[in-house]
Amino acid sequence: MSAYALFKKDLASELRMRYAINSLIMFIVVTISVILFSIGNEKISDFLSGGLFWVVIFFSAMSGLSRAFVSEEERGTTLTLQLIASPTTIFSGKLFFNLILVFAMNIVVALLYSALFDAFVLKNLPLFLYAFVLGNIGIAIASTLIASIIAKASSKGTLYPVLSFPILLPLMLTLIDLTKQAMDGTTFETSYIELAVLGCYDVVMIAASFLLFDFIWKD
């Protein structure tokens, strides 16, 4: 069984059930409207709106991305998967699915957010896009690996953000910093180090994930 076949299977079952998509869309709408209500008629600063953008993304990711492995565990299909495919294939397939999900979700968040928040104006759009792409890849990798860990533990729902937050923290801090710089309109030369940190994070995480997934997956 190839990673692509696993991805197609996940996509087909997702399109049939629409579990993750529906709950994610509703979650994004709820989170953004809570922020809008709590702001009311106040004028918020640019930097705050940039930070809140990543708060919405973090919590949306935490609500939807654990499905990749938890659903296999709930349906009892883990053993079958263990029999027909190698751990690397499984992880590649799940990671690819989560990547698509993260990108779709974050593009929706970014569009909604820039439509609803007047303070969220990006002066250096290409810089933000670079950060956005690298950040999404990092979020997808880390959250896929943590999802595979919590699928084996009890109290999955609460454990997921608890375990993911420290792992995602260096990524989030750099992304918030870069978003602020993109809103200030800094050039690529000044933000080069932050972008390099994001790149390093992605590479380190993907290497560690593929090395460690074997141990999580094999019972």
Binding site: L145, P166, L169, P170, Y201, A208, L212
Partner: peptide
């Protein structure tokens, strides 16, 4: 699981 988690967390510590 805790071994895997502590390794993956240790990877982020240099950051």
């Amino acid at each position: 699981l805790s071994s895997v988690y502590s390794i993956i967390a240790f990877v982020t510590v240099p950051f």
